[in-house]
Amino acid sequence: MRMSDPADDLPETVVTYLRLRGLPPSARRLKRRRRREDDENQPFTAGRDPRGLGEVITSLTREAGWEGRLSQEDLVLRWADIAGAETAQHAAPVALSEGMLTVQCDSTAWAKNLQFIRSAILTRIVTELPEAGITGIRFIGPDVPSWKWGPRAIPGRGPRDTYG
C-alpha cells in the first residue's frame, strides 16, 4: 500500500517551484486566514459611536504620554493666573529641569520677596497642575554676566587684573 505523499495534494506548478528552490514539497505551509473577532469592525457594538474632538485629543495625549509636558506648557501660559497679575509683570518662568521651576525677576528685591511666598505659589501650582511635576521653585534676579560657565565650573574669585 502506498503512503499519501503531500505533493499529491499540491498543484504541479507549486511542486515544480518547490523543487527548483531545493525544498521538499512538504515544506510548503498553507496560509489560512483566521477570522478574528474584531468588535470594532462589527456594526452596532460598543465603542462604535462617534466621540467628541476633546475626548479624542485627551485620549491621544494620555496614550502618547504628553500629559506632563503639556501641563508644564500650561504653567507657562497661565503664570499670570497662578502667581498673580502684579507678580507676573515682574517675574516670569524661564527654565524647568527635574521638577525645579526657575523664575527670573526684574530685580533682586522682587526675587527676595517672592522667596517669602514661595510655598503659596508652589501649593497653587501643585493643586492646579499636578501633572506638571513641579517640586520646587527657584527665584533669581536679573541676568548679569558671569564668569562661571557650565555645570562643572570650579569655585574661586574669578578673573583678576589679566587685561594688561
Rank of each mutant, 00 (worst) to 15 (best):
A95Y: 06
Q115G: 14
E12V: 11
E86Y: 03
L75S: 02
T108W: 03
P159G: 06
M1N: 09
D74M: 12
R21D: 07
K112E: 13
P24L: 08
P6Q: 06
V14Y: 10
G141F: 01
K148E: 07
V14W: 07
A109D: 01
T16H: 07
V56T: 12
T162Q: 13
P155I: 02
R124D: 10
A27C: 06
P93H: 08
K112Y: 00
R29G: 04
I121P: 00
E37D: 11
T87Y: 01
L96E: 09
Y17T: 15
R124S: 10
A132I: 09
C105K: 01
P6T: 05
E37P: 00
V56S: 03
L20N: 09
V144D: 02
T162C: 11
I57P: 01
D5S: 12
P43K: 10
P43L: 13
E40K: 09
R157K: 14
G65H: 04
A120C: 00
V15M: 03
G54W: 03
V76D: 05
D81N: 10
P24E: 14
A120L: 08
P11V: 07
G54C: 02
M100H: 13
L114T: 04
P155E: 04
G68I: 10
Q115F: 00
G84I: 03
P142R: 08
M3S: 09
S4T: 11
R35E: 14
E131H: 11
G54K: 06
T87R: 13
R35S: 09
Q42A: 12
G150W: 02
T127E: 14
A88N: 09
L30Y: 06
L77H: 10
W79S: 05
R152V: 13
G156P: 02
A109N: 04
T123N: 14
T16D: 12
T127S: 15
V103E: 09
T61V: 14
R19C: 02
E131D: 14
G22L: 10
E131Q: 13
R34L: 09
D161Q: 13
V76I: 15
A120H: 12
A7T: 07
T123F: 04
D39M: 06
G52V: 00
R124P: 01
T13S: 11
R160L: 14
L77V: 15
Q72R: 15
R2V: 06
I117N: 07
P142C: 02
E131K: 15
L101N: 04
L122F: 05
D49W: 01
S71A: 15
A132M: 07
T123C: 08
V144H: 06
Q72D: 06
Q115W: 00
R32I: 12
G22Q: 09
L129Q: 07
T102I: 13
A7G: 15
T45F: 02
I82D: 04
W147H: 10
G133M: 08
G22Y: 06
V94I: 15
V15D: 03
E128M: 12
V126Y: 03
D38W: 08
L23G: 00
R69C: 11
Q89I: 11
A111V: 06
Q115Y: 01
